[in-house]
Each structure stands twice: as C-alpha cells, then as structure tokens.
Design a protein around this nucleic acid. Sequence first.
RNA 1: UCCCCGAUAGCUCAAUGGUAGAGCGAGCGGCUGUUAACCGCUAGGUUGUAGGUUCGAGUCCUACUCGGGGAGCCA
Length: 475
Amino acid sequence: MAQASASISTLSIAEALRGKPGGMATVRGWVRTRRDSKAGLSFINLNDGSGFGDLQIVAPNDLPNYASAIQRLTTGCAIEATGELVESQGQGQLVELRASSITVVGWVDDPDTYPVSAKRHTFEYLRDVAHLRVRTNTFGAVARVRHCIAMAIHRFFHERGFYWVHTPIITASDCEGAGEMFKVSTLDHLNTPRTPDGKPDFSQDFFGREAMLTVSGQLNVETYCCALSKVYTFGPTFRAENSNTSRHLAEFWMIEPEIAFADLQDDMQLAEDMLRFIAKTVLEERADDMAFFEQRIQKGVIERLQAVADTAFERCTYTDAIAILEAAKTKFEFPIHWGADLQSEHERYLTEEHFKKPVIVYNYPKSIKAFYMRMNEPDAQGRETVAAMDVLAPGIGEIIGGSQREERLDVLDKRLDEMGLNKDDYWWYRDLRRYGSVPHAGFGLGFERIIQYVTGMANIRDVIPFPRTPGNAAF
RNA sequence: UCCCCGAUAGCUCAAUGGUAGAGCGAGCGGCUGUUAACCGCUAGGUUGUAGGUUCGAGUCCUACUCGGGGAGCCA
C-alpha cells in the first residue's frame, strides 16, 4: 500500500489541512460525500477522524478508475488518495488534494441501507448503530473532546505531583455504600451451591466470598493518599441502579482525587482549578470541534466554557443556599427547609438562575451525608453539618461531589454506630485512623458529565462510546 | 422504579375506524469548480411485539419491549 516514491508523505487529514499548498501527499479516510461535476471532476469530502474538518479531494475524470470506481463512491467508502496539495479554486476550504491516484480500500456493501447516510439522523437512532455513529460529525467531535479532557485531567494531576492509582474494579467489601452493586460470580445460576440456611454459598465462589463491581474507588484510594499524599483514580465505575435519565449510566468513568494534609477549602480549590484547567485546555486544543458544538449542538457553549476558564466559581454554604432558596420567588414543587436535601429544581435554581455559573455548595447537614465525611463544629443554633461539597453546573446539576474525610477514629466510630454499620467490615479503613492519621479530602468527578457540560450534549448516552443502561448492553 | 408522551419506507415525519403518502437518502438520467448542491424519473412497507374489540384497525383497548421529557438514586 505504501507509495514507492520517498518524496510522497502520508499525512493525516488534520496535517494536510494545516499544510501549505505545493507538496505531494497521500491521505486515507472514509468518504463523507461525493459530488460530480460535468466539468470533468468529482469532489470527495474525506475524513479520517484526525480533526473535525474534511479534506476535499478533487478527482479529475482522466483517472483510470474514474468511471469504474470514483463515480461509484458513496458515503462510508474507505479510500486512499495521492496527489498534490493545492490552493482551492472554490469557496469553503483553503487547500484541497488534486488526486493523481485514488485506491478504494473498502466499499460500502449496499449504499441504500448504509446506516449512516449523508443526511441528518437523530441521536436516538444513532445509538442503535453505535458501531458506525462515530463516523458522524457529532460523534467524531465528542470522541476527540473526550480524549482531550481525559488527557487534560491526567496532565493536570501529573504536573501537580499527583500519582494515578489503579484501584480495583472488583471489590469484596459491601461497605462502599454508594448505590446498588453488580454481582461478580462464577457460581452456576442453575445449580447454586447453598448454605444450610438456603442462601447462596459464596465460600464456593471464585473469590471465596461475595464479590461486586466497584461503585467508587474512594475508600481504596484513601489508603494510597495516606502514604503518597496526592493521588487520584481514573477508571470505570458501576452502579446497578434502575436509573433512566439523560445523566445516568450503569457503567461510567470517574475521577477521584484524594489529598492528604488538606481540608475542605483545599478540596474545593482543587476541584475548581481542575475544572478551569479542563475548560482552558479544550478551548485551546479542540477549537474545531467546539465551533461545531457551538453552531449545531448548543449555542453559548464556548462562551460558557470561556467563563469557566476565566472566572472564579461561586461558593456558598448549604445554610446560605437554603436562605437564598427560601427567599426565591420561584414556586418549588418540593418546599425547601434546613435539613432537607437539595432537589434537582433547587440545584438548578442556584446554578442557573441565582448565580448563573458553577457554584460550590458546602457544609451540608450530617443527616443527609455519608458516614466518612468529617463532622464540623455545630453552628450557633447547634445544627450539625459535615465538611461536604457539591459542584453544581448549569444544565447538568451535580458534576462533582466531595468531602473532607473524618480522620478522628472516635468520631468515625460514633458515625458508624449511628448509621448501623459494622466496624469490622471497615477494619482497614479504620486502621488509617489508627496509624498516622491526617486530615485529608477528595472528590468524585463524573467523567461523562464533564463531557456533557463541555460539549452541550444533552444525553449522557451520547458522550460514551457504548452506553450501558438498564435493559441495554448492546455492542 | 414512578408520572406523561411516542414507535409507520434506509432515515425524518404525514395519513376522519374504510385503497399507507411526502421530504431526505439510494439507483438511473440531466446540469454545474462542486461543497446541506440543483432538476427529472424509478425502486422502496407483515405500520415495534403479542393479544383483543370490529364487517373492517396504522388509527380503539390490554400487556410487553424500546425511545423521549420529568422525578427519584447519584457522578
């Protein structure tokens, strides 16, 4: 397949589009559209995923395979084209490739039923052809932005001295407490071994005990935090909740940093710095894709992202948030009062209407938060709160949830007792509080949710390659 | 899981309980340095699945599946 001539370089289409007219080049990709001109030319828009833009290939009718192949090209065909990069005579592009040869690498079987034809498709339909949807403008752009954000997150932490910790996917501790878990088992479902009291005998299972897929790497990563000081996880997470919304998946990716010798203020600063770094990086590196999202997906995404990059987030205690909500003229379906958890409508009001930008709400009532969150001193009215924080973003809602962790063993044990949890199940977690315990804090960022926020994509199922949701694990 | 709405050609959608249509895509032809191209012709259907009501069901009823909007769980 490689060209014999050493003077012809194979370029990605992104490189070809950046190149100056003059040189010879070979490009490869998939046909987006073909238009014939009776002036003796065909125009082929070619895309290889290296960037948003297509390269226009000009195919003159004196090519030997013009009638037999070029004129039969349809959307989706894979080709290799070699020719000279020239200044375009038409509008709409600076450079184009004047082909001296075009090889068809792969035909489209039946153009009439090619699932991703050159027309508009709904996202709902494209989910049914997830193996081909990435060939569309939208899903190609999402894939590139997803990669860009992932790399930005790794760079952000790496540059600040964090270590990436690979916490386990399979866990035997039922104590993660963040939702329903998928079971991991090699037991025979048709002939399950039983204990005398009729329950499945997990001692005969693969791990010798009941095992699940993780719902969070937090408890594990805290152990590494209390030795390496600054750590984070970035991996898949599983929740067996029967959630049917545009912002929940059964399998999603999560980033969970954890910092030692740190309090909630440090935690909030880290969350904000990270989100602003992500915004800045995407604007710099994926301007082509962002221009598309701005134009076709959601007006204002670029401005919104620019605002995240440029301006500090709002911060507001839970108690102050309640005061704002109580003073609001908006009628809420669920009346709000101190001690109640914020409903979606309340979060939306705060971030979309009151502050009109990302806001960090912190110091929540202890009664609505997890056992591991650090107890604050009671306020003047004696109300008890924990050092927890949520980052709320317009259009998405909760994008980050985090807290300072309870590092005092006696306080932690009291909380475990209050919540009816068995201390023995948490023996290694409690050990961290016995051996050189230090204040530490962390948060969880939903990876797909930050992609939704950045791109303006409305449904979380469209920002992950192959979404897993209740009743759907196709592909 | 709960409430509301929906499922008809490859795709997006029409169709009073009485002969299933259009646009786009596709095929063929015309025109043109074209670019959401344009003009003409052609093909394309077990109306999501399973039951029921009716002389007759795309249309009415029931259940299920999937999708959308909202809610809960959360990231």
